[in-house]
Design a protein around this nucleic acid. Structure first.
Ligand SMILES: [Mn+2]
Ligand SMILES: [Mn+2]
Ligand SMILES: [Mn+2]
Ligand SMILES: [Mn+2]
Lengths: 252, 252
DNA sequence: CTCTTTTGTTAGATATATCTAACTTTAAGC
DNA sequence: GCTTAAAGTTAGATATATCTAACAAAAGAG
């Protein structure tokens, strides 16, 4: 039997904490988890037993805690929901970091994959659509903070006008294209062309690196290998070799 | 003592159900609440006791349930959060009604007033900003559903161009203005001028009807009295007399 | 005004998530 | 290597939210 019941929100939080501790400190001790979640150690012990019973972690009393493959997958899923909501709250709604973090961690447990994808697509669309982009988001933040004078709209329209005038680079496309390898951490770009063949190409597509997708470079090792990117809410690590043949269009 | 503890999510749901039943059916029986929330009647009895203890409802065994003033206020607050999230999910993210309803009702319990306001302002801004509006939202929905061809952006830009060409009606403002009383149910508008004086004006401003605010006409009685509007997430009922002297600019 | 159905309550059970207090194991200091 | 300090576990308590089953009150039908 052992019905694979959906995890409770509480257990998702424990799993998430373990995931972060393992990736940041290389160990997830009971005490660390307890501190992280602001609960007592005895509560953690109980939770660990529950997670172990569901085959999400490897655990025995006094033993060290590691994630199973299923646990790793499940944790990544929770983290994706968490980060998606948090990013929306901070970058779009302009909510302060702490509140965004707290609210995201409470809401993440009831956000379906479908809706997570919608949130991600929405943020992508804001970035991609020439009408909007980061400057439009900033307009919104000002709209929130201050009185909205009619003059703002007029000025704003002129900006879009200018944006449009500059944009018919649809023909002179080449100029705006560059290899993924040439991006700097923090930069966002739209995938335009994947110049890979066979299995390699297939693998990369499976990871979500498809034409039209928006990615952001998160980290880049000194020699540019590997390159950590975030795409569709997922974190990926690519070999330098793999990034050279992915052509992108830098956003903004 | 009787520390005024924050309501649990569960109790907020009971309160919300009672609120809706009282406003729609004029009575909130234990059975109705149970059906509404898909729980057993015995669970409702327990919840009613808890709500009564917190002075949110008037209740005695076998007696009828009514909301106290505090309960009414609190319920309105829950409903505002619920409707705000649901509206965002449906109108912006294009999530289907059922999932939007369910997710909103789970998330509403952890959404602060501040963040609720942000969501509302964001939807207002999409409506008000000449760059975006409903047509932009539709672009997003198409972007989600289908492959995003580059041609779309080009066409989209031409639309904005046209929008801008038509928009320098900033000077010929008068033409686009009209009295709130002349709107039809479902129409949205931005408040431009409130031609009221003294106490009346003050009262109306307190209710959230201020210059720049976006409102939507929800219902209008046969003779146009009263007019039910939604503004900043709040439902208001205005006398016909009061709507005549509120000048608005219809959106879209 | 009785009888029956519906509605509502109570008591007791189960499940989750937390805590405190007492105890056990492991790790550190010297 | 002992001895202490830190980390981890267990047992038992509390709180919330639900359920089932048995019972009580109110409403409806005739
Ligand atoms: Mn969480
Ligand atoms: Mn989280
Ligand atoms: Mn709810
Ligand atoms: Mn709700």
């Amino acid at each position: 039997m052992t019905t694979i019941k959906a995890l409770t929100g509480s257990l998702e939080d424990y799993l998430e904490a373990i995931y972060h501790l393992l990736h940041q400190e290389n160990k997830a001790r009971v005490k660390d988890v307890a501190d992280h979640l602001q609960v007592k150690k005895s509560s953690v012990t109980v939770a660990l037993r529950a997670l172990a019973k569901q085959k999400l972690i490897n655990y025995a009393p006094y033993g060290e805690v590691t994630l199973t493959l299923l646990g790793e997958k499940t944790a990544e899923d929770v983290v994706r929901r968490h980060e998606t909501l948090k990013e929306f709250f901070i970058t779009v709604l302009d909510v302060d970091a702490k509140q965004a973090e707290d609210t995201a961690c409470k809401m993440e447990h009831v956000l379906s994959k479908e809706m997570t994808d919608k949130f991600i697509q929405f943020m992508e669309f804001i970035d991609i659509c020439p009408r909007t982009g980061q400057d439009w988001v900033e307009k919104f933040h000002n709209y929130c903070g201050e009185k909205h004078a009619s003059g703002d709209c007029k000025g704003c329209l002129n900006e879009v006008k200018e944006k449009i005038r500059l944009l018919p680079s649809v023909k002179t496309k080449e100029e705006t294209l560059c290899a993924l390898s040439s991006l700097k951490p923090g930069e966002k770009a739209e995938v335009v062309k994947i110049q890979h063949k066979g299995t390699f190409r297939k693998r990369i597509l499976e990871m979500g690196v498809t034409t039209g997708a928006v990615l952001m470079v998160e980290r880049m090792a000194p020699l540019g290998d590997p390159v950590d990117i975030k795409i569709r809410g997922y974190h990926l690590s690519l070999r330098k070799e793999e990034t050279k043949n992915i052509l992108v269009k830098i956003l903004r």
